[in-house]
Amino acid sequence: MPADADDLVIATPAGLYCPAGDFHVDPWQPVARAVITHGHGDHARPGMGCYYTSAAGLPILQWRLGAQDYRAFDYGEPFALGRTRVSLHPAGHVLGSAQVRIECGGTVWVVSGDYKRQPDPTCAPFAPQSCDVFVTEATFALPVYRWPETAAVARDIVAWREECAARGEAAVLFCYALGKAQRLLAELRAHTDQPALLHGAIAAGVEVYRAAGVELLPTGTVAEQAPRGGGYAGALVLAPPSAAGSPWMRRFRRVQTAFASGWMQVRGNRRRRHVERGFVVSDHADWPALLQSIEQSRARRIIVTHGAGDALVRLLGERGLAAGTFDTRFGSED
């Protein structure tokens, strides 16, 4: 989409840039001022002069990026950058995730970052913002992606663990270490009180959430529990996807593996990952939620940043909206 001279956000080699405010949103190259939507590695990178973040997201950035020049703001609390008035609003993606609302001379742009519309006990729910231009993610922008109720999936996970227990197997559930793991632990609380064991790479993030006051299922770490007798039989273990096929897995002599992700909606993805089970739990908007959010934004122009955007852009175009894409380096992990 050709940029207008007065566009509030444009795509540049360093990342999405707001010329009127002279700041970037989730840049991938070092810049002076970076407004960060959330703490995932493809959105929050080291090397920025100054980080603007939601207060709720600050502990995550401190954990991931260490000591930096942070400016933290409550949701909805406006601050001035250049000629613009900026505020952060809940995106419902992970703890502290934010949409960036940018206002300048009566025009409002919202950059969604990653977001979802399903309830999530670990973070504030997505708050729709009216705007002129809505810059949206499109990780799961095809109608085949429609998420099941999370509670039903949590019950399936518990049933699966019980099945594994009956067979003398450990139940290793792969999930991303920031956000997904904590959401699973929070959702599982309603259905079980058996503690889950954590891979080391997940334990740190779980502590950040606990310190922020998010209630999670009790946990232990895998290293702590020596495998006596039954070893890890019947244990639910959360591990990052990178642990799949690694030597770390050898400690579970009898094991079933599963992956918790929106990608598991399609069977081919599950089989490609060589896991026994796929649980559809996503921290991104599904197709109906994308359309709903676009509609609620009341924007007349939609810009899609990453994911399967082509179909969405074409559909919005057919529905009479101005729709285009920004080329970004955000990933499609979930």
Partner: peptide
Amino acid sequence: LPAWLVEECRAHVGDLAETLSLL
């Protein structure tokens, strides 16, 4: 859904029966 979008879904999923069940 428009026909092109159904076709896009089928290409993405790779299996017609599964695509139909997901929509």
